[in-house]
């Protein structure tokens, strides 16, 4: 079923919508996931974002709670 990962629609939020999403919820109720490289994260990231570079994501999926919405960039 690997095709499913390419066909499942992902909602997009612009910066203002993402900020509203975060401000109307407790920080504990969602995950912000930064999939860029460490040096990009170091140069600036969304406060509270968890860094898992994309090449490591499949191995580290267990670090993300599937019960909570995940905001990715």
């Amino acid at each position: 079923m690997r095709w499913k990962q390419f066909l499942t629609p992902v909602k997009s939020l612009d910066a203002a919508e993402a900020r509203d999403f975060m401000q109307t919820r407790s920080a504990e109720s969602f995950t912000i996931l930064d999939v860029r490289q460490p040096e990009e994260y170091q140069a600036g990231h969304l406060p509270g974002a968890k860094l898992i570079p994309l090449p490591e994501l499949s191995e580290r999926l267990g670090e993300i709670n599937p019960q909570k919405p995940t905001l990715v960039y």
Partner: peptide
């Protein structure tokens, strides 16, 4: 992530469009 059942939102523009304080 979405294909594995996660509820995913893509933040379009990422950090470049983020106009609130960053860390």
């Amino acid at each position: 992530l979405a294909g594995k059942g996660y509820q995913v939102y893509n933040i379009s523009g990422g950090i470049k469009k983020w106009d609130s304080p960053a860390a």
